[in-house]
């Protein structure tokens, strides 16, 4: 089962890469069509091996993920619309693993003591006064 899933994912990814390849060739071969900035972008991304699959990600999918985490539906749509393909891919793959900057401490007293010492030692920077 696992192997089969893996295989189908691999096949899908390969198909995507080939589809991209075919797309560029077509674009360059057809004499009177323009090479667009989007095509150049995709080409650079493929060259970087960044986000080669991401063009098939739907914005609606990431939008739903944001909404499921408490973001207002209309806001989620606007937020997703402002994202680049690479950003969409990053978010979609790891929305719960990516670090979220919050900047305030929720720790028990014992940890506070450790952090104060570490702050004094210059390792951490949680208490701006120290």
């Amino acid at each position: 089962m696992k192997i089969r899933t893996l295989k189908s994912v691999t096949t899908w990814m390969l198909a995507t890469v080939f589809a991209f390849g075919a797309m560029f060739q077509q674009a360059y071969a057809a004499p009177q069509t323009m090479v667009t900035t989007e095509q150049l972008m995709q080409e650079m991304q493929v060259a970087d091996q960044r986000a080669s699959v991401n063009n098939f990600l739907s914005r609606a999918d990431v939008q739903a993920q944001l909404a499921a985490r408490g973001v207002d539906a209309a806001d989620a749509q606007a937020r997703v619309n402002a994202m680049s393909q690479a950003e969409l891919a990053a978010l979609s793959a790891q929305i719960d693993e990516l670090p979220a900057g919050e900047g305030l401490l929720e720790t028990v007293l014992f940890l506070l003591v450790i952090f104060m010492l570490l702050d004094i030692a210059g390792v951490t920077d949680i208490f701006p006064g120290l």
Binding site: R69, G70, V71, D75, A78, E87, A100, E102
Partner: peptide, 23 residues
Amino acid sequence: VSHVYIPSRQGSLQVEMLAATRT
């Protein structure tokens, strides 16, 4: 807040900071 804050994560993701800058 409505552009970058994710309630269930109690914070903001880097990707969304970039996207909101663009907005």
